[in-house]
């Protein structure tokens, strides 16, 4: 049976969904913060070619880029507790944040590394020539410039991460996608429910895209 499109339903559903947007954004923000810290560490390990660990970092990056996020989340949440008891108590929300940050850190590490390598090598030499250590040079001269280069692509990953939090519903996290799914199966208005959730994601992404543009404009103004 073909039902008619129910705009009223979408309008009524919106405020209900938006209540769950907080969980979504919380996952995205924590996930991004951890991903940023982890990816910076990975990038530095690879740039400085830290003996032995650099190969581990490369392996890590290869694995998390080479396998689907959904599979990684399942391994983390359903798989690991069977082998490592410390993971048994982990709730789905935490697992989702860990999974998202591991996955995205692999991509972000590569773009931070590329940004660092893109900064003229002679500036590092200039730092060393006046007696600075490599770490000081990185912190004061190279990273600030690399950050400017990497910011647009890191913002893209953040936006991507917001959308990827929708996978957390497969772990049972009560976020916006899970709510839409629940509403859909009780009202049988699948099209309207999922369209409504799509619209919410879309508006959020547009908002952050706008911020991204403003940020880029400001960054381009400095030196």
């Amino acid at each position: 049976m073909q039902s008619s499109f129910d705009l009223q339903y979408i309008i009524e559903l919106m405020p209900i969904l938006i209540k769950y947007l907080g969980v979504t954004m919380e996952m995205a923000l924590w996930g991004f913060l951890f991903a940023l810290i982890l990816s910076l560490s990975l990038a530095l390990i690879r740039v400085f070619k830290v003996t032995f660990i650099q190969h581990l970092a490369a392996l890590f990056i290869s694995f998390f880029r080479g396998t689907p996020l959904l599979v990684q989340l399942f391994i983390l949440y359903y798989g690991l507790p069977q082998f490592m008891p410390i993971f048994i108590g982990m709730d789905a929300f935490t697992a989702a944040i860990i999974g998202l940050s591991l996955h995205f850190s692999a991509y972000m590490a590569e773009s931070i590394r590329a940004a660092i390598l893109g900064i003229d090598k002679s500036q590092m030499e200039a730092c060393l020539s006046i007696g600075m250590t490599r770490l000081q040079a990185m912190k004061r001269i190279i990273l600030p410039q690399a950050a400017r280069v990497a910011t647009p692509s890191l913002m893209n990953y953040f936006i991507d991460m917001i959308k990827s939090t929708s996978l957390a519903f497969t772990l049972g996290v009560a976020e916006i996608m899970a709510k839409a799914q629940m509403e859909a199966s009780s009202s049988f208005k699948f099209f309207e429910s999922f369209l409504a959730v799509a619209l919410v994601y879309w508006v959020v992404v547009l908002f952050f895209t706008r911020i991204q543009h403003l940020l880029e404009k400001r960054l381009n103004k400095a030196y």
Partner: peptide, 8 residues
Amino acid sequence: NYSLFANK
């Protein structure tokens, strides 16, 4: 090539 710090 001078190699000045571009961000300073």
